[in-house]
Design a protein around this nucleic acid. Structure first.
Length: 166
DNA sequence: GCCAACGTTGGC
DNA sequence: GCCAACGTTGGC
């Protein structure tokens, strides 16, 4: 009796000096809207492909070093990004209206800590992750799908043995 | 701070 | 619809 929906895995980038995994861990609501994304591919992933319960590699970009800092989980259905309607917001979109919102987001919640940070250097030097999107040159997309085998490999590199493996 | 990669904009 | 100019991302 199941419309069996496979859990998917994702990588979401954030600059830790703007919003870090620790910031997510200390959210009073236990979650945050993944707002201000203004890239159509990234939006489409949130709008069309993410499901509540999908797991996320929380990736620190523009960091020293860049890499995977923690595990998160998709925590809401898609809904319009409120920042697009705010004229004072940096990412206000004058072409967007509540009737016809252009930018859609999901909420993200912390799922688990990692025993250790896994740097981009380490990811790149693992032959099993040669095809992983974040390892590719010029990989700018801030939301990327992660294959199940890549997911398991990254968690293994982090020394992780918790529930995100199941 | 540099700059390669690449997405977006706008003139035509 | 092409494509040059421009802006942004993000590793280094």
């Amino acid at each position: 009796m199941s419309s069996k929906t496979q859990r998917r895995y994702w990588l979401m980038k954030s600059e830790p000096n703007v919003y870090s995994f620790d910031d997510l861990l200390s959210e009073p609501d236990g979650r945050t809207p993944w707002d201000s994304i203004r890239n159509y591919q990234a939006r489409n992933f949130m709008r069309d492909d993410m499901r509540i319960g999908d797991l996320v590699l929380f990736y620190h970009s523009n960091a020293k070093p860049p890499g995977v800092a923690g595990l998160a989980v998709v925590a809401s259905e898609p809904y319009p990004d409120p920042t697009q309607f705010d004229p004072n917001h940096k990412y206000h979109d004058p072409k967007s209206t509540p009737d016809q919102p252009r930018w859609i987001l999901v909420d993200v919640a912390p799922f688990d800590r990692l025993p250790r940070f896994v740097s981009l250097d380490e990811l790149k030097s693992n032959p099993k992750l040669a095809e992983m999107q974040v390892c590719q040159r010029g990989s700018r997309l801030s939301i990327q799908p992660v294959k199940p085998e890549e997911w398991r490999e990254v968690l293994k590199m982090a020394g992780y043995l918790g529930p995100a493996l199941t």
